[in-house]
Design a binder for these strands. Structure first.
Lengths: 368, 368
DNA sequence: CGCGATTGGGAAACCGATTTTCTAGATGCT
DNA sequence: AGCATCTAGAAAATCGGTTTCCCAATCGCG
């Protein structure tokens, strides 16, 4: 309030309460070994309140050797998947008394900025992240953009920097926080086969992106379990454009497909467009289901059936895992047990009948 | 590397180089008053490199009385508009040697989470943000979620906390960093009138959201300049759902509308759906143009014409403004001069002819 | 009443930097 | 040669906390 007043320090509180800094500090930090008269305690707490004392984070970090700040590194801020992870992480961090520093890893692969190209600055990002820790700006890192063999992964390991990997798992790191992707794939495939679909294809993400590969594997496994050995899989960029192209390639190659499981929401947006451009009706001719839900799915044409994944929870779990690591617990993989939830919308329906399918194939032949 | 090694301190570097801490510090901080023999300089720099010295951020913050960290407070992490502001701010901050702390203001109004409801924790957020500064965790705040009369706005003012408002302006604060919304409105209206449209309506956001009001005002002004005094305006929530309802209400009330300018991309998504459900064709019957572009606009049905706004640049400008304030410059409003850019897509076309319009009105009458 | 144990809290070292002040020796000038 | 100036860097205070060690007064107890 008073513009001339400097910030209030621990010493100011101590003086006003007629005790030493040590007493105030120990009281505020609930030091169990401190014994203090109720009356003195009151004086101190009153002084704290009266002066509006706030400890200096830097000074505390220096003395305690911990910052109570975490960094979260994601490949793409504008990607809804990651924003929801960020949201979950942010809130859990606050709950645990940490603040969250955010960093976008512009070097991460698979970030199709999808139309709105934006220039990428040339900072040596991966070492910069390690610096966040070695300059003691944060206590640890949550990494959502890791690739096995990444220089960042190596640096984190070597320098024994507390960290966890979220969403994208690094094998054998014992630091992976992930969702049950296999369950999601199973859910989708069971749902589709329940509707009579047999020729189910998959639009996957780029081969070098781990979570994409996992979804692909989960798909193949679920299909194999049904006795279908070689379902069609097309890979495309993680963008609407990528989904568009993959879908076109897919229906051109296998016109008999009656259902498509798409690896991401944005790809599904492109796939729907491609099917429509190609003259196929969704869901009458082809059903489309995507991994991961999005609010706007309701307003696509047609509205998109998808599996909602617990992303917010995933971010929160990553914070939990990292914090427990900071408390000297051994790192261990965490798999969220929350079951994926199928959100039914108009893009999926019972499989077309044999006849209509033959007719369609016929038409597509003559069209080509 | 060596697991037993503690972190390397300034003193370690000094010892290895055979000088005192002061010399190392002054050299590294390019102290002009330091004179040093070239040979000594080499020894020091070698030692720094050999030990991989990184200054301790907390210690430095303590001594320098500045953290070189900024906080960015946004209303909704999952909103593409804000993610792009964040991206711009983050990158500019790095360039200027700052780190960015991110915070989502869950108390901010107008955040329609649009379908995927997520629980809101009960933290007293606004004071928490001031605490970020008073605990000296950050040097200043970039606030994207402000409302005039907000308790946060008052606290920032009273406690003389360095801050700027971005996107949402607070009148008379002299701290607003904004884009040229009027130019955007003008651009859209001139474009539409150029296509022959006269009955142009506006789908706005909630009345209590400032940037939404600005867009609404800009629209009304541009229309007034054309001699149209009382164009239709409908307000709806900042969500696809909100846009859907507003569009329905609008065509019900004024079936003669031939073009709609929508306040946000998400609302436009809903509006397109509504028009289609209502049986109106876009762009044959009605043209739709939205404020702010999005990558997926290409894949809507039909692809959406929109005004691309320089959001990344806006975030960067906010950092610049805040940093200059930290350097004791007087705060001043900043208006980005970058011209809004119209991205033409299939949702806009020449106005329908008189006859077709009459026919349409006729049909809609009989339909009701 | 005398002793040890407990209660209540003070004193000081320390965390890792920055910054101001100061000084010994070298150099320049007349 | 003698004095003022520079050069190169050392010494020490300081930033705002935390934590360990310690001591004086009080209490309980036989």
């Amino acid at each position: 309030m008073d513009p001339t007043s400097r910030r209030v320090r621990l010493a100011d509180v101590a003086e006003r309460a007629g005790v030493t800094k040590a007493t105030v500090s120990r009281l505020l930090n609930q030091d169990k070994t401190l014994s203090i008269r109720p009356e003195t305690r009151r004086r101190v707490l009153d002084a704290v309140a009266a002066l509006g004392y706030q400890p200096h984070a830097g000074a505390r970090a220096l003395a305690r050797n911990e910052t109570r700040a975490l960094a979260l590194i994601i490949p793409d801020l504008t990607n809804l998947t990651y924003s929801r992870i960020v949201r979950g992480a942010f809130r859990r961090a606050i709950e645990k008394g940490f603040v969250l520093l955010i960093a976008e890893d512009v070097t991460a692969p698979g970030v199709a900025v999808d139309g709105l190209a934006e220039e990428v600055p040339g900072t040596a990002a991966d070492t910069a992240f390690a610096d966040l820790v070695s300059s003691r700006r944060v206590d640890g890192l949550i990494v959502a953009s890791a690739q096995p063999g990444d220089s960042m992964v190596r640096i984190l390991e070597e320098q024994r920097i507390p960290h966890v990997f979220v969403n994208r798992a690094i094998p054998d790191s014992n630091r992976n926080v992930t969702m049950d992707v296999a369950a999601a794939g199973d859910l989708v495939i069971r749902y589709l086969t329940g509707l009579g679909h047999r020729r189910i294809a998959h639009i996957a993400g780029p081969g070098e992106i781990l979570p994409s590969l996992e979804r692909e594997r989960a798909f193949l496994q679920s299909m194999a379990a049904l006795g279908v050995d070689d379902p069609h899989v097309h890979r495309g960029a993680f963008s609407a454009e990528g989904g568009y192209r993959a879908a076109l390639a897919m229906v051109a190659e296998d016109p008999g497909v009656t259902a498509i499981y798409v690896s991401t929401y944005v790809q599904a947006v492109g796939a729907l467009k491609a099917l429509s451009d190609f003259g196929l009706r969704v869901p009458e001719d082809v059903s489309v289901v995507s991994f991961d839900d999005a609010p706007q799915a309701d307003f696509l044409t047609p509205p998109l059936t998808s599996v909602a994944m617990p992303l917010t929870e995933l971010g929160a779990a990553a914070v939990d895992a990292l914090v427990s690591q900071l408390a000297q617990q051994e790192p261990a993989d965490v798999l969220l047990t929350t079951a994926p939830r199928l959100v039914l919308r108009a893009s999926s329906a019972v499989a077309p009948t044999r006849e209509s399918l033959d007719l369609r194939t016929e038409l597509s032949r003559t069209a080509t």
